[in-house]
Design a protein around this nucleic acid. Structure first.
Lengths: 345, 345
DNA sequence: GTTAGCACTCTATAAAGTTGAGTGCTAATA
DNA sequence: TATTAGCACTCAACTTTATAGAGTGCTAAC
C-alpha cells in the first residue's frame, strides 16, 4: 500500500483542520468540509490506511485522528507552498526603532512574536575571527582610563580602568602605542605569557594597569565568541492549550528564559543550508530539546557577511501554521538582508 | 475590641503557617502547633475577632482563615525581624562572573532568583545628568569612523559611522577637535539648531557625517535616560498554585516579559527611603500593577553614587517568605555597596 | 470501489452521594 | 470571667454512577 493522491489530499485536510482547531479530526468532518465528495465511511477506510502508514494516530479508540511527527514532516516537506506574506510595514518599523545590532535583533524577535503569536528567538551572529584590530586608551580623569577595543569585523568593546597611580597624559599615549604595537592583528591564542612579560617590561610603573587591560581584552574576545540569544513572546506559549499544561509550560518557558539550550539550533550538524534561505523545520523530538518535544521550531538563517551568520527561530505548538510562519520568516530575512547590505543598522 | 498580645500571636501563627503551606489555616492547627496552650475553641473565638478586625478572612464558610492584605501588612510592618542570612558565597560568585555593570545587574537578578525561588527584577540606575564629557573619533578604515561618546558619570557609548567620502586622517583629528570644543559639557537640551549650523559651517565636506554623529549622540543620551529592566526566574511564578491559574500566570509573565510596567517601582511617590536600606514591600493592589494583584513585591534600592540609584525587586505570591526575602535583599545590597565602593565592576 | 447502517468504544460531562476539615454556638468548668 | 468540650452544621473536594455523543470498524448492499 502506498500513498496515492487521494490519501495525500485527505492527510492534508486532516492536518489543516487540526492546525486550526487543535482537536482530533473525525472522518465526518473531512467528508463534509472538503471537495472530495466521499462519504465518511470511505474516509474512514483511507484514514485506517494512513494510520497504518504512520502518518496519523488516534489518541484513543473513539477519537478522531491527529498527525504524527511523520505526518507533520510530510506536510512541511511536500505541501507547504511559498506564501508571499502581505507586504507589511515590518521593515519601516525596524529601521525606525533599531539603531544598533543588539537592539535590532531584539526588535526582530519582538516583531516576529507580535506578528505570529508564537514565541521567538534570535541569536547574535557567530564570528569566527577573534583578531584585535586596534585598541585605544584615553585618560578620562586623573586616575581613570578608558580602553576601546576594536576587533576584526568592527566589533567594539569598551572598558573603564582605575589606576592606583596618577596618570600622566604622555604616559597614556606611550602605553597606547606600546599596546597597539604588540597586540595589533593578534588572535587571542597568540597572547602568551612570554609576550605579556615583554610588554610589561616596557611600561614601567603601569604593569598593574596593563595586566588588567590584557585581562579585559581576553574576556571581551571571549564574550564576543559567545552566542547570545534574545527571546520574545514566550508567554504566547500559554495560548495553546496543548502546551499550557502546568509542567510542560514551565519546562518550555524555562528553556526560553535560560536560553542555553536554544543555541542548539545555531549549528545543527544534521542539516546544511538549502535553497529556501536556510529555513529549517524541527518537529517534536527533532528539536533535540527535551522540553520541546511537543513543540515545533522553525528557524531561518541571516547572514551579515560571508560566514558570519545567526539564526531566527519561531517556537510554537506542532500545529503551528507552517505556511504563514515560513512566509513571515522569509519576508523578515529579506528585510534583514537589505539592512545589512546597506550597512546602516 | 482591639488587637491584644494574644491575638497578635495567633495572627502571626496563622500567617506563618499560611506562608508555608499556601492552604487556609484552621483553629486546630494553631491550637496544636503553637506554644500558646489554648484549645481550638478559644482559637476559634479569637479568629472570629481577628476576622472582624479585618486581618483574616475565610475563603468559604467551612474553610480555615487566610490573611488579608491588611494582615500581611501588619505582619510585614511589625513582626518581621531582621534576619541575617547565612553568609553565603554570593559575593564571590558575583565578582567572578560579572565584569561590567549590565552584566553585573543581570547576574544579580539571576542569583536572587536562584536563591529565593521567586521572580526577580533589577533596574539599571537612573542618571540625572546627561552632560557630554567628551567624545572621540577614530578612523577605522578609509570610509568608516568610530565615535566613542563619554557622558558624565563615565557612561560610554560607541557608534560606527560610514562616510560617503574617503576619510583623511588629519580631517578626522580636526573634526574630533571641533566636535569636542562645541559639545563638551553640554546637556542634550543645549544642542540647538543654531549651534548645529555653526558647527556644520566649520567641517567642510563632512556635514553629512556630523549630522549623523549628532543624531547618534542625541539617541545615545536619550537611551541612557531610559531605565532598562532585567528579570530572571519568571517561571518560578508557576511554582505557586495560587498564581498558576492560566490567565493569572499569563498576565504576570507578560508583565515580567514586557518590563515596562516594572519601572513603576523605581519612583514610587508614596514612599520615601527609610532606614531599612530603602526596602519596600508592596502587597497585592499596592503594587499598582493590575496583573500583580495576587502578588507581593519587595524592592530594595542600590546606589552607585550620590543620587544615582536603581531598584532590585523580588516578585512572588502574597504568602512569600518576607523574612527571608528581606534578609537576602539586605545581604545583596551590602554586597553591591562593597562592589560599587571599590569601583571594580 | 463506494456507501449506508449498525453495534461498539471511550471520553467528557453531569448528577448524586460521601467524606472530612472547619466553623459557630452552647453549656459546663476552673 | 475566661476557657473549653462537645455537637450540629456547612461546604469544598472527591468518588461513584449514569448519560450523551463523537467517532470508529465492520458488513452487506449498491
Amino acid at each position: 500500500m502506498d500513498l496515492d493522491d487521494r490519501k495525500l489530499k485527505i492527510l492534508q485536510a486532516i492536518i489543516k483542520n487540526y492546525l486550526e482547531t487543535g482537536e482530533p479530526v473525525g472522518s465526518r468532518t473531512i467528508s463534509k468540509y472538503t471537495d472530495l465528495n466521499l462519504s465518511s465511511a470511505t474516509i474512514r477506510n483511507e484514514m485506517a490506511d494512513l494510520e497504518e502508514l504512520g502518518y496519523i494516530v488516534q489518541p484513543h479508540t473513539s477519537a478522531g485522528r491527529i498527525p504524527t511527527d511523520k505526518g507533520y514532516r510530510l506536510y512541511v516537506d511536500t505541501m507547504m507552498q511559498e506564501k508571499v506574506d502581505e507586504v507589511n510595514n515590518m521593515r519601516d518599523d525596524l529601521l525606525e526603532k533599531a539603531d544598533r545590532m543588539e537592539n535590532l535583533l531584539q526588535q526582530v524577535a519582538k516583531m516576529l512574536a507580535a506578528n505570529t503569536n508564537y514565541a521567538t528567538m534570535v541569536t547574535t551572529p557567530k564570528y569566527r575571527s577573534r583578531k584585535i584590530k586596534f585598541l585605544q586608551l584615553t585618560d578620562v580623569d586623573e586616575y581613570q582610563v578608558l580602553a576601546v577595543i576594536v576587533l576584526e569585523g568592527n566589533i567594539v568593546k569598551n572598558r573603564m580602568f582605575k589606576s592606583d597611580i596618577a596618570l600622566v597624559k604622555e604616559d597614556v599615549l606611550k602605553l597606547n602605542l606600546a599596546l597597539n604595537t604588540f597586540l595589533q592583528g593578534l588572535d587571542i591564542e597568540e597572547i602568551n605569557i612570554g609576550l605579556v612579560q615583554k610588554l610589561k617590561s616596557q611600561v614601567g610603573a603601569y604593569q598593574e594597569l596593563v595586566s588588567e587591560i590584557l585581562d579585559a581584552i581576553a574576556t571581551a574576545i571571549q564574550e564576543e565568541g559567545d552566542i547570545r540569544v534574545y527571546t520574545s513572546g514566550a508567554t504566547n506559549i500559554l495560548k495553546y492549550p496543548e502546551l499550557s499544561d502546568m509542567n510542560k509550560a514551565r519546562d518550555i518557558l524555562s528553556t526560553l528564559e535560560n536560553k542555553e539550550e536554544l543555541t542548539q539550533f545555531v549549528d545543527n550538524p544534521d542539516i546544511q543550508p538549502d535553497e529556501k534561505r536556510g529555513i529549517q523545520v524541527y518537529i517534536g523530538d527533532e528539536t533535540r530539546v527535551d522540553s520541546m518535544k511537543d513543540c515545533s521550531v522553525v528557524t531561518a538563517t541571516y547572514e551579515i557577511e560571508e560566514g558570519i551568520y545567526g539564526k531566527v527561530g519561531i517556537i510554537g505548538p506542532k500545529r503551528m501554521d507552517y505556511e504563514r510562519v515560513v512566509g513571515t520568516l522569509q519576508n523578515m530575512m529579506g528585510q534583514l538582508d537589505d539592512i545589512f547590505k546597506n550597512k546602516k543598522p
